[in-house]
Deep mutational scan, measured.
Amino acid sequence: TEYKLVVVGAGGVGKSALTIQLIQNHFVDEYDPTIEDSYRKQVVIDGETCLLDILDTAGQEEYSAMRDQYMRTGEGFLCVFAINNTKSFEDIHQYREQIKRVKDSDDVPMVLVGNKCDLAARTVESRQAQDLARSYGIPYIETSAKTRQGVEDAFYTLVREIRQH
């Protein structure tokens, strides 16, 4: 089974770092803004072998026109913010609204991801993020692309959301 996953969120929150940590098991430290990259990885989730087709997208506003296209083809979405960047957390709402509009559905598989949880300088409390996820009816997972904490959990949870859909 193949799953088309799309990673969305503001610029600099760590979308590529999360994806590369999942696929290649290493942490990319330097920031190089993405336009669009796709990665494929075969994994076993709950005993089922599946192929993850992951689209890593641009957070930069100037590429926002490309969003409709990949939102149409994606089956599930990782909505990523950084726990030390309140603005990126506030941006999640717009991504969710755009996904709902493009998919013409209120019920699209999504996982809210709070990345950079290895950093002490948190400005978005776990509780705020949990409340937001609960209001959307989606899971919330904290990750660190640096330490790998929660990385597999985030992507695998999204696959489970798609399966249950």
Rank of each mutant, 00 (worst) to 15 (best):
T1Y: 10
T1I: 09
E2V: 04
Y3C: 09
Y3R: 10
K4R: 12
K4H: 10
V6S: 05
V6W: 02
V6C: 08
V7L: 09
V7F: 01
V7S: 03
V8A: 03
G9E: 05
A10H: 08
A10L: 12
A10K: 13
G11Q: 08
G11I: 15
G12P: 08
G12D: 15
G12Q: 11
V13D: 02
G14T: 00
G14F: 00
G14R: 02
K15C: 07
K15R: 01
K15W: 06
S16R: 00
S16H: 00
S16K: 03
S16M: 05
A17C: 06
A17Y: 10
T19D: 00
I20Y: 10
Q21W: 15
Q21H: 10
Q21R: 09
Q24T: 14
Q24K: 06
Q24L: 06
Q24N: 11
Q24R: 04
N25I: 03
F27C: 04
F27V: 07
F27I: 07
D29I: 07
Y31C: 02
P33R: 11
T34M: 02
T34P: 03
T34A: 03
S38D: 07
Y39I: 04
R40P: 02
K41S: 12
K41H: 09
Q42T: 13
Q42K: 04
V43K: 08
V43M: 05
V43W: 12
V44G: 12
G47L: 06
G47D: 07
G47S: 09
G47C: 10
E48V: 13
C50N: 14
C50V: 12
L51R: 05
L51G: 09
L51Y: 05
L51I: 14
L51H: 13
L52N: 01
L52P: 04
L52R: 03
I54H: 03
L55P: 01
L55G: 09
L55I: 08
D56L: 00
D56I: 00
T57F: 01
A58S: 10
A58C: 02
A58W: 00
G59E: 02
Q60Y: 15
E62V: 05
E62F: 15
E62D: 13
E62M: 15
Y63E: 07
A65E: 03
A65F: 01
R67C: 08
D68E: 12
D68T: 03
D68K: 02
D68V: 00
Q69S: 11
Q69H: 07
Q69Y: 09
Y70R: 02
Y70S: 01
M71H: 06
M71G: 02
T73A: 11
E75T: 12
G76L: 13
F77D: 01
C79G: 03
V80Q: 01
V80P: 01
F81A: 05
F81N: 02
A82W: 04
I83L: 13
I83V: 14
N84W: 03
N85T: 05
N85E: 13
T86H: 14
T86F: 12
K87F: 10
K87L: 08
S88C: 12
S88M: 06
F89T: 03
F89D: 04
E90G: 09
H93T: 10
Q94A: 07
Q94P: 04
Y95I: 13
R96C: 13
E97G: 04
Q98E: 15
Q98M: 15
I99P: 02
K100Q: 08
R101D: 02
R101G: 03
R101L: 04
R101I: 07
V102E: 15
V102C: 15
V102D: 04
K103W: 09
K103V: 06
K103R: 12
D104V: 12
D104L: 12
V108E: 00
V108Q: 05
V108F: 15
P109L: 05
M110Y: 03
V111D: 00
L112T: 01
V113M: 08
V113A: 06
V113E: 00
N115V: 11
K116D: 04
K116H: 15
C117Q: 10
D118M: 00
L119I: 14
L119C: 15
A120M: 10
A121D: 12
A121Q: 05
R122S: 10
R122H: 13
V124R: 08
V124T: 11
S126L: 10
R127N: 11
R127D: 13
Q128C: 11
Q128H: 08
A129D: 06
A129P: 05
Q130S: 10
D131G: 09
D131T: 03
A133R: 05
A133I: 02
R134M: 07
S135A: 12
S135Y: 11
S135Q: 12
Y136F: 11
G137Q: 02
G137K: 04
I138T: 04
I138D: 05
I138M: 05
P139C: 05
Y140C: 06
E142P: 06
E142C: 05
T143W: 01
T143M: 10
T143K: 00
A145C: 12
K146N: 15
K146T: 12
T147F: 08
G150V: 08
V151K: 05
V151N: 08
V151C: 04
D153R: 10
F155T: 02
F155G: 00
Y156P: 03
T157A: 14
T157P: 04
L158V: 06
L158M: 07
L158I: 15
L158A: 05
V159G: 01
V159A: 06
R160Y: 12
R160N: 11
E161L: 12
R163S: 09
R163Q: 09
R163V: 06
Q164E: 13
Q164V: 04
H165A: 14
